[in-house]
C-alpha cells in the first residue's frame, strides 16, 4: 500500500477498508475522510463486525440453555477415560509404591474438606530412588473470604499430614502452603468468579 489513490471517486476494496478498520492504516485516512462511498462501506463493515459479535454471544446464550444435558454426558465419558498419568511412584514407608496421581487426589480431597479451602496446584517432592525417604509437599490454596488465614493454614497442615501419613504411608518432611487467592462466595453458579483480593501469602513449616 505504498501508493494510495486519493481522488474522491476512487473506491477502495473492502479488504483495504477492513484493514483500515483493524489497524487504522494511516495512508487511507485522508481519502476515507472525504469519500462518501468509502465511508458508507466502512459503516457497513463496522455494522457487520458488531452484528457478528452479538450473534456469537447470542449463540452462546442459546447453547447454555440446551447444553447442560449432553455436557453432563461428556463429563461422564471423561470419568471412564482418565488422562494417562505418570506411573512413577514416590517413596513410602512400606513396600508398596504409591502412584503420584493417588497422592495428589488425596491432597485435593483432604484439603477441600477443610471449610473455606479449595486446593489448587500441588506437588510432592522426594527422592524417588530411595524408598522410605521423606517427601516435601507443596500446596496452593484458594481461601474463602472471611476465614482467618492462619487458622485455615494450620487446620489444612494438620489434616494433610494425618492423611498422607495414614492413607499414603508417606514420610512427610514438610508441607509448604501458599494462599494464592481469596474469593468472595457467591450464589451457586459455574460462571467465572467475580471479586477477588488477589492476595498471596506463603507459609512454610515442618508439620
Amino acid at each position: 500500500m505504498t501508493s494510495v489513490p486519493t481522488h474522491p471517486g476512487y473506491r477502495h476494496s473492502l479488504e483495504d477498508l477492513n484493514e483500515y478498520l483493524r489497524t487504522g492504516e494511516p495512508n487511507l485516512e485522508p481519502h476515507v475522510r472525504n469519500c462518501p462511498r468509502c465511508r458508507s462501506s466502512l459503516q457497513g463493515l463496522r455494522r457487520l463486525d458488531s452484528l457478528t459479535d452479538r450473534l456469537a454471544q447470542d449463540d452462546i446464550c442459546r447453547a447454555e440453555s440446551v447444553g447442560a444435558l449432553w455436557l453432563g454426558r461428556l463429563v461422564a465419558r471423561l470419568r471412564v477415560e482418565p488422562r494417562a498419568q505418570e506411573p512413577l511412584s514416590i517413596p513410602v514407608k512400606g513396600p508398596t509404591p504409591t502412584a503420584e496421581g493417588f497422592v495428589l487426589a488425596l491432597i485435593r480431597s483432604t484439603g477441600d474438606s477443610v471449610a473455606g479451602v479449595t486446593i489448587g496446584r500441588c506437588q510432592v517432592q522426594g527422592d524417588r530412588e530411595t524408598p522410605s525417604s521423606g517427601v516435601r509437599v507443596q500446596v496452593n490454596l484458594s481461601a474463602r473470604w472471611g476465614h482467618p488465614l492462619p487458622d485455615l493454614v494450620h487446620a489444612l497442615r494438620d489434616r494433610l499430614f494425618d492423611a498422607l501419613t495414614r492413607h499414603a504411608a508417606l514420610d512427610v518432611d514438610g508441607i509448604d502452603i501458599t494462599v494464592t487467592d481469596v474469593y468472595v462466595p457467591r450464589p451457586q453458579s459455574t460462571g467465572p468468579p467475580g471479586q477477588r483480593t488477589g492476595a498471596a501469602r506463603r507459609d512454610q513449616s515442618a508439620p
Binding site: 495428589l104 477443610v114 479451602v117 467465572p192
Partner: peptide
C-alpha cells in the same frame, strides 16, 4: 464446603487441578 466452592474458582486454578488429573 470445599468441593462446593469449586465452581467459584478461577480458570487458572481449575486448569491446574485438571492437569493434576
Amino acid at each position: 464446603p470445599g468441593s462446593s466452592d469449586l465452581a467459584q474458582q478461577t480458570d487458572v486454578l481449575l486448569v491446574e487441578r485438571a492437569i493434576d488429573g
